[in-house]
């Protein structure tokens, strides 16, 4: 339970850890795109965490990063084919950002030190947090930028800039500022340098 809460609120990948910026900013032009990207990422994250934590006894420490990349590349290729077959319009909307999931900072984190069950749960929590952030970001941008919400007309005078790339940055800045003001994550959000985030440091990636 704590793990789920942590993933969604305290360590929200986008709003607190600031990981996975690329899909979070690029595909959130509509709520549906954000939701679709979030769900796809969640499924891949849970599966990769599960597979890698089951394999952890057989993979030596220096082989972890290659093992993770290979697993992710295989899973994402499958996800791509499934999505192309099942929901073509979403597949077209996500475009190049779907295969780019492989190098999403969120999925490159090491979680195989955990027990398989815990690791999958950690993936579920982080994935849900990611989905939530992307959906909220997408819904707000869709509402302000194109005047619709999940495709339904809601606003008569949309502000075009929010549907454009700068709008993504503005909206994310605004969301994080609101969370900062409410002190929701009990943590100042920012890109520290050198990175304080253990999994962004060198050791895990060798």
């Amino acid at each position: 339970m704590t793990r789920l809460y942590n993933g969604i609120v305290k360590e929200n990948p986008v709003l607190v850890l600031l990981l996975g910026m690329c899909p979070a900013l690029a595909v959130t032009t509509t709520a549906v795109n954000g939701l679709g990207m979030g769900i796809a990422t969640t499924i891949v994250l849970i599966l990769s965490n599960l597979i890698l934590s089951l394999l952890r006894d057989y993979v030596p420490a220096e082989g972890r990063f290659p093992a993770r990349i290979l697993t992710l590349a295989a899973l994402v290729s499958v996800a791509e084919l499934v999505m192309e077959a099942c929901c073509t319009s979403l597949y077209d909307a996500l475009g190049v950002y779907l295969p780019l999931m492989v190098v999403n900072g969120l999925l490159l984190r090491d979680a195989e030190t955990l027990e398989p069950g815990e690791s999958a749960l950690d993936g579920l929590g982080k994935g849900l947090g990611f989905t939530l952030a992307l959906t909220v970001l997408g819904a707000l941008r869709e509402l302000l930028g194109s005047g619709t919400i999940f495709g339904a007309q809601a606003l008569s005078n949309p502000i075009g800039i929010f549907a454009q790339p700068p709008g993504a940055l503005l909206m994310l800045a605004f969301l994080i500022a609101v969370l900062n003001a409410a002190d929701f994550g009990h943590k100042r959000r920012g890109w520290a340098f050198p990175s304080e985030n253990p999994d962004e440091q060198e050791e895990g990636k060798q």
């Binding site: 600031l18 800039i161 454009q164 790339p165 700068p166 709008g167 940055l169 503005l170 994310l172 800045a173 605004f174 994080i176 500022a177 900062n180 003001a181 100042r188 959000r189 920012g190 890109w191």
Partner: peptide, 20 residues
Amino acid sequence: TLRGAPVVLLAAALMSIAFM
């Protein structure tokens, strides 16, 4: 409120508008 990530994102947004 804006310290940390928000002000950095705002700066990037302005730069992005310039690139438009």
